[in-house]
Computed example of a mutant assay.
Amino acid sequence: MSLRTLPDPDHLPALDRRHLRLDGLGPDIPGHPPRILVLYGSLRERSYSRLAAEEAARLLRLFGAEVRIFDPSQLPLTDSPGFQDHPAVRELFELSLWSEGQVWCSPERHGQLTAVMKLQVDLLPLSHGALRPTQGRTLAVMQVSGGSQSFNAVNTMRLIGRWLRMLTIPNQSSVARAWQEFDEEGRMRPSPYYERIVDVMEELVRYTLLNRAAQPRLVQRYSERAEAERAAQAQALASA
Rank of each mutant, 00 (worst) to 15 (best):
E185F: 10
L237C: 08
V175Y: 01
L6P: 08
L92Q: 03
H19E: 14
Q74N: 10
R212C: 09
Q120D: 06
A176S: 13
S150V: 11
G186P: 08
Y222K: 13
A226W: 10
A236I: 11
G136A: 01
I36E: 02
A57C: 04
S127N: 11
S99F: 05
L12D: 01
L77C: 10
Q172N: 06
T114Q: 11
P7D: 06
R196T: 07
P107F: 03
L51D: 04
T168G: 00
N171E: 15
G186K: 08
R21E: 13
T208V: 02
A115D: 12
Q215D: 06
D10F: 03
E54P: 06
S239V: 14
V175L: 12
N152L: 13
P133I: 00
G146D: 13
A236S: 13
Y40G: 05
T134C: 06
E54Q: 10
M142R: 10
S80D: 05
S239T: 14
S174M: 05
R230M: 14
Q233E: 13
P9Y: 04
R44S: 02
Q215G: 02
S73D: 01
E94H: 05
V219H: 04
T156W: 08
V205Q: 03
I169T: 07
N211K: 03
A176C: 09
L126N: 15
D8S: 11
L51A: 08
E184R: 03
V144M: 00
A226Y: 10
E195I: 06
N171D: 14
L218Y: 09
R165L: 15
V175G: 00
G82F: 09
T208Q: 00
E66K: 01
E54F: 07
P192H: 02
W179K: 14
D183F: 01
E203Y: 01
R165F: 11
P27K: 14
Q180S: 15
S80F: 04
S73I: 05
A236W: 13
S150W: 09
G136E: 05
P72G: 05
R206E: 02
V121L: 00
P192R: 02
P87G: 04
P30H: 01
L164T: 01
G129Q: 08
L15W: 05
S80L: 02
L159E: 14
A53R: 00
S2E: 09
A65F: 00
